[in-house]
Design a binder for these strands. Structure first.
Lengths: 347, 347
DNA sequence: TGTTAGCACTCTTGGGCGATGAGTGCTAAG
DNA sequence: CTTAGCACTCATCGCCCAAGAGTGCTAACA
């Protein structure tokens, strides 16, 4: 798309203004508030061009211009500039301290609220598909005769467990020796590797612990699935702050989507492999049920774990600010998880 | 409050109608749809009486009657009758099967959605303040030199854990022997008792394990607090189905309240000691920020654990049905938890 | 050729106004 | 005590009109 410098500036001004005010931008307002040294008539011509090219549109004849999705896209891809100093953001950095403590889920819950607070929209955080850290210890606890609780512990202090029912009965002593056997075999591996390794063992192993091993193998999978991919939504009520959503029907469909966490998850999952911050504007958003919403998503990671986080808000959002917030939060979360992991690795 | 039989019937008819339709009830409509063998004029007189007594009110001169909170209160206390057969409810009993599997939190998440589905309003479930089951096993896992993960296991398979940092370093052997010592000392006690017992131990114990014991004592508390009193909200979007909440401002304050889970928790906690199903109508609801909402709450319990659950909806709700749903769900949840516990106790 | 001033035209928004209709309260008769 | 009748009230809805914002077009200007 080849726009000359002046046209670009006008487009940027229109979008900036519109994001700020929310009402269509007319030529006279534009001429007054920006220093183009151009008359409103000239601006009208330029705006008409931009409309013809599909960057702007007209709600009705006598209204000002409003950006189209294509307009926003161009704005984000080519017009937005990020200052090196992220003043507004780093000012609030101290708030991040609240993210430090607690267990993993608590951290993510907080992170989603952190995103909501800074962006003034709704924040979402998806727990990593794989638990953090590497295998450290496995423990078998006999509850009733043949009921056994299998507990996995990682070097970062994450604890996963599953209750299984066995056919045969094991003595406490047998369980302990099996556990120390596995402890040695599985040390330093990620939980996905552990799962793989157990399968190999299962194939080569002779009778004795066969059934227990099989249950352990199964548990290693279930336990991961159960704990992973949890979705945390923070500040959903922020959606009400946007005049665009004053319509109750829109609101309803929005909150229906939030209730149906599973679908939201799938949407966010799609993006989880991508690097950097991604922006989905309006209908680019593959989650069709949410109309008029944009999505800014990023990843966080530490070692072997990768999770997704982002902000959901109206198409008319302060992209620049929100992108910075998401970027900042993803780094922050990565750092916090990294530190947790570090603690586990040094030994 | 002494109302004669006829007046009672009229009040009931007005409230029933209003709950159904949502629009003020006029005398003619009432005369037609119910078989009072009274003219609309007589009904007008009776309704005027009821208004004078504070059971009904008038939005404006030429509108029908609407129940006041006092009216609803009387309706629930004296007029509602529960048929022995809970047809509408038991029909859906099979859906309950989805509640069976998974871990405790998952069950509660499901229960909140179950409540929402059946009541067509918003469901809430508060996790018990004390973890279910009795002490079964404690495990210490050394992560780094003096970082130790303390794991509590109950006889129902609940696993609680906390990472602590110690001053002195223990060998794996020391940790194991300390753990088996505690296993014997604490068996069959609830986690609250365990906490208490650890304090006693702490007082009488001599040097050696002092620091570790102290950390364990602390952990036994923290771990309970962290896991307890979690709030699960299901079907929040149901709120949009009520015409009363078509106003965006009302909606906003409602969802703000949902975002602020902590406050909601406190409200629900207050009721947690009470027996049976309780109904809070409108401003009776001690959570003042929520206007125009009623609350139907009950308890569930199994053995030593007691939790709260309920439904939040508009003042104009189908109390009879909702009360049955809450009652049914609390029994159901009690049963499911009871079964889990049973499994742990037989040994 | 690009820019600007001027002007007619369009279309939304909001207020005012009256008709409609539901429902009441009162009165008088049964 | 009940009922029919009637005047009265008040929210709601549709309608019209004025105001205002903003455009597109044309013609003049640099």
């Amino acid at each position: 798309m080849d726009l000359n410098e002046r046209t670009k500036k006008v487009l940027q001004a229109v979008i900036d203004s519109y994001i700020q005010t929310g009402s269509p931008i007319g030529s006279t307002v534009l001429a007054k508030s920006y220093d183009f040294s151009l008359s409103s008539a000239t601006l009208r011509n330029i705006m008409a061009e931009l409309e013809e090219m599909g960057f702007l549109m007209h709600p009705h004849t006598s209204a000002g211009r409003v950006p189209t999705e294509k307009g926003y896209r161009y704005y984000i891809d080519s017009l937005i500039s990020f200052d090196r100093d992220t003043q507004g953001i780093t000012d609030q950095l101290d708030q991040a301290s609240s993210l430090q403590g607690g267990d993993l889920h608590h951290i993510m819950e907080e992170a989603s609220q952190f995103l909501a607070k800074l962006s003034r929209h709704t924040g979402v955080v998806v727990a990593p598909a794989e638990p953090e850290g590497t295998f450290k210890h496995i423990e078998f606890v006999r509850l009733r005769g043949n009921q056994v609780l299998i507990i996995f512990v990682t070097n970062t202090g994450t604890v996963l467990n599953k209750l299984v029912e066995l056919d045969e009965q094991f003595t406490q002593h047998e369980l302990v020796s099996f556990s120390s056997y596995l402890d040695e075999e599985l040390e330093h591996q990620t939980l996905t590797e552990v799962h793989q390794r157990l399968l190999e063992k299962l194939r080569e192993e002779k009778a004795s612990f066969m059934r227990l091993l099989e249950q352990t193998y199964r548990a290693s999978q279930e336990v991961q699935e159960r704990d992973s991919d949890k979705l945390f939504i923070g500040g959903a009520s922020q959606m009400f702050e946007t005049p665009e959503f004053a319509d109750v029907d829109k609101m309803r469909s929005l909150f229906r989507a939030f209730d149906d966490k599973y679908k939201l998850l799938k949407l966010l999952d799609k993006t989880s492999k991508a690097e950097g911050i991604k922006v989905f504007i309006g209908s680019e958003n593959p989650f069709f049920e949410i109309q008029g919403c944009s999505l800014v998503v990023g990843n966080y990671q530490a070692g072997n774990v990768v999770g997704t986080l982002g902000v959901i808000g109206p198409v008319r959002m302060q992209y620049k600010q929100v992108i910075q917030v998401v970027d900042y939060t993803s780094r922050l979360l990565s750092r916090i998880l990294g530190e947790r992991m570090q603690r586990g690795i040094e030994r």
